[in-house]
């Protein structure tokens, strides 16, 4: 009998204890948690400081991809107007975001640090076709953000996020895994 009362009190004590602690739930989507620096979200293609694309169209990302989500069609650079350093560039670069499992093997395989998985994770859209991200979209993620996410119960406008502007650049602001001042980058430029 007394044992039962003790257990009851212990249980109540646990409840009471947690009710006064700060909440760890986040009111998503109004609130968003900051993601870790290693977070593997939407892909992004990088450029050199001189504007040339880092991607050389080698197709190693496509070869490494376990879900065959990447399509690369290479072509030869016009030496007068090169797209990337060297002889080869990606004429077509597409990632199928439905197929992608965000494992990051493309990033591992890339010999020139052209592709990185970024922090952005809200990638839903309305039709299958719009999940195929082209090279332009991947090179300029701030301009080509996915369409505004609509949630049935909290359909509040989030200014700055969806109109291709500030919100996303804030998100990417500190996320620069490929600092252009690393020795590797300098060597590539040379």
């Amino acid at each position: 009998m007394l044992n039962g009362v003790g257990a009851l009190l212990r249980g109540l004590w646990t409840t009471l204890k947690h009710s006064v602690r700060p909440a760890i739930t986040v009111r998503y989507p109004e609130q968003k948690r900051t993601v870790s620096a290693n977070f593997r979200g939407r892909h992004r293609l990088y450029r050199h400081d001189n504007g040339l694309e880092r991607c050389i169209g080698c197709e190693l990302c496509a070869g490494a991809c376990p879900s065959q989500a990447i399509l690369v069609e290479p072509a030869e650079n016009d030496s007068e107007h090169p797209v990337s350093p060297g002889e080869r560039y990606a004429k077509r670069y597409e990632i199928n975001m439905i197929r992608c499992i965000f494992c990051g093997l493309c990033e591992e395989a890339c010999p020139v640090d052209a592709i990185k998985l970024g922090p952005e994770y809200e990638l839903s859209d309305y039709d299958r076709g719009s999940f195929v991200y082209t090279k332009e979209m991947l090179l300029d993620p701030e301009h080509y953000a996915p369409r505004r996410q609509v949630h049935a119960d909290v359909d509040v406008p989030r200014p700055g996020y969806t109109d291709g502007g500030k919100g996303l650049s804030d998100l990417y602001g500190t996320y620069r895994p490929m600092s252009s001042s690393t020795p590797r980058a300098k060597r590539d430029e040379a």
Binding site: I56, C58, G86, V112
Partner: peptide, 10 residues
């Protein structure tokens, strides 16, 4: 070691 841009790669 320019295998990434070499057609023989693979």
């Amino acid at each position: 070691l320019d295998c990434p841009i070499c057609d023989k790669g693979g």
